[in-house]
Every structure is written in structure tokens, then in C-alpha cells.
């Protein structure tokens, strides 16, 4: 307990040191303010954007647009990757069918196939969501397959000895056994989609946090870039906290078997 609170203070300290360094370096003119705006200026830009929005849309709608794309892509990934992962883990045949596709596209840089997606799906939201979906799908699928592989065989046999058919064992034993891995997969997938977010909003977007940052860079508005990056970082931390909280409340037995 004691050590933990100490560690909390240490984290705060490192954030504080970084902020001080930032402030010092701008206040003492160590750096060109064109590239590194002062904290005050960034705060000013933040207040401005909050009040008047950026390029015609309020800040909330930029955040909302990004989150909507993320959420939709994520939803699609969850409803496809989890059942497919479970099926692959359960049946080597299904796995043989699906694995090569995933092994092939997973290491590709997202921007490489994004061009194709735009070609096929147009420059609207569909191609963006497809890109984010692909980013989320692979890590989630892989985590679920690994989860199934880790289930003790005797657990499934115990269920069968209690009268569970193969189908019921799948639903009532295999799926819940994988929940911890599903949550781990969701966290990794979340990171992957988030990092592709900017790429997704690079092409023909007029809204979103990623777009805001890219657009600001064209006009050398480093203060807006800073606002965008800090916001994205903050939202990422909050999303991760949310998933971790969900994992903790939904799979309290994780790691304690």
C-alpha cells in the first residue's frame, strides 16, 4: 500500500518535471516558439478551440467524430474477431482457413493498404472505419485464439462430464474461460486502432482529432498540434482506464486461478 502511493507520487513527479522543463525551455527562449509553443500559448489555443471550435466545427465534434469511428470499428472487430477466434481456437480446420489471411495482412503497414481501401470504399467514413477495423481485428483475434489454447483440457472434460454437449461446452466454458484474454486483446487492439487513427483521418477528412493535428501542421500552428496531441494522449489514457476497470469488474478471477 505504502509503496504504491509512493509510486503514484513518483509518476506525478515525472509529469511535473517534464512540464517544468517545457515551461523553462520556452520561457528562457531555448527553443524556437514556432516549433515549441509555450504552455501558456497551448492553453490559450485550447481555450480558443473550446470556445470557437477548429475550422468551423466545435472541439467536441472533432473528438466525437474520432471516437465514433473508433467505436464503430471496434464494435465490428469485437463481433467478428471474438467468434472467429473462438472457432479457430476450437477447430484446427477453421484456424487453417483463417490464419494465413491474418498472418499476411497483420505485419503490413496500415497506410499501405489504406490506399486500396480508399479506392474501394471511397473517401468517406467507410474506408476509415475499415482501416480501424483491420487494425483492431488482428490483435483481438490472436488473443482469443491463444486464450482458447490455454484452457486446461480437464476443464472442458469436467463440463462434458456434467452433461454439457460440445456446443454448450463452447458457449458456457470456452467463451468465459477466454474472457481474460479477450480483455487483454481489447486493450492491445485499442492501442493499435488508436495509433492508426491519425492515418485514417489523413485522407479527405474534414473533422476528427487526427485531422485537426495534420491540418494545423500545414499552417505551422504548433500550439494546436500540441492541444491535439495532448488531448489524444489524455483520451487514450482514459479509454485504457475504462477497459482496465471493465476487466477488473468483469473478470475478477483473472490471474488468480
Amino acid at each position: 500500500m505504502r509503496i504504491r502511493s509512493w509510486n503514484g507520487w513518483l509518476s506525478l513527479l515525472s509529469v511535473f518535471l517534464l512540464l517544468s522543463l517545457w515551461w523553462l525551455s520556452t520561457a528562457l527562449n531555448w527553443v524556437n516558439p514556432l516549433f515549441v509553443p509555450s504552455p501558456q500559448k497551448v492553453w490559450g489555443a485550447f481555450v480558443d478551440i473550446c470556445r470557437e471550435g477548429y475550422k468551423g466545427s466545435p472541439l467536441a465534434s472533432h473528438i466525437g467524430e474520432s471516437l465514433k469511428r473508433l467505436a464503430l470499428a471496434f464494435f465490428l472487430a469485437i463481433v467478428t474477431a471474438i467468434p472467429l477466434g473462438l472457432a479457430s481456437g476450437y477447430s484446427p480446420k477453421v484456424r487453417a482457413l483463417i490464419d494465413p489471411l491474418i498472418e499476411f495482412y497483420r505485419p503490413l503497414p496500415p497506410l499501405a493498404y489504406y490506399t486500396l481501401l480508399v479506392l474501394w470504399l471511397g473517401i468517406g467514413d467507410a474506408s476509415k472505419i475499415a482501416l480501424l477495423f483491420l487494425a483492431a481485428f488482428a490483435p483481438l483475434y490472436i488473443a482469443v485464439v491463444a486464450g482458447v489454447a490455454r484452457i486446461p483440457r480437464d476443464r472442458i472434460l469436467a463440463a462434458r462430464s456434467l452433461g454439457a454437449s460440445r456446443g454448450k461446452a463452447f458457449l458456457y466454458v470456452i467463451f468465459p474461460s477466454c474472457l481474460p484474454d479477450i480483455f487483454t486483446g481489447i486493450r492491445t487492439a485499442m492501442g493499435m486502432t488508436y495509433t492508426t487513427l491519425v492515418a485514417a483521418e489523413m485522407v479527405a477528412a474534414v473533422s476528427g482529432m487526427g485531422w485537426m493535428v495534420l491540418d494545423a501542421s500545414k499552417f505551422l500552428r504548433s500550439d494546436v498540434i500540441f492541444v491535439g496531441i495532448l488531448l489524444m494522449g489524455l483520451i487514450a489514457v482514459l479509454l485504457d482506464l475504462l477497459v482496465r476497470w471493465l476487466a477488473k469488474t468483469q473478470v475478477p478471477w483473472n490471474g488468480k486461478e
Binding site: P152, D154, R155, L157, A158, A159, R160, S161, L162, G163, V173, P176, S177, L179, V251, W253, K256, E257
Partner: peptide, 18 residues
């Protein structure tokens, strides 16, 4: 084959953790 008329108690309790 595994069936509900034949119950099994394992060496390690092997309960469903959830």
C-alpha cells in the same frame, strides 16, 4: 464417453473460476 451419470472429482478442484 463423458456423461452426467458418471461424475468426476479431479485431483485439483478444477472449478469454473468465473
Amino acid at each position: 464417453e463423458p456423461r452426467p451419470e458418471v461424475g468426476v472429482v479431479f485431483q485439483h478442484a478444477n472449478l469454473f473460476p468465473w
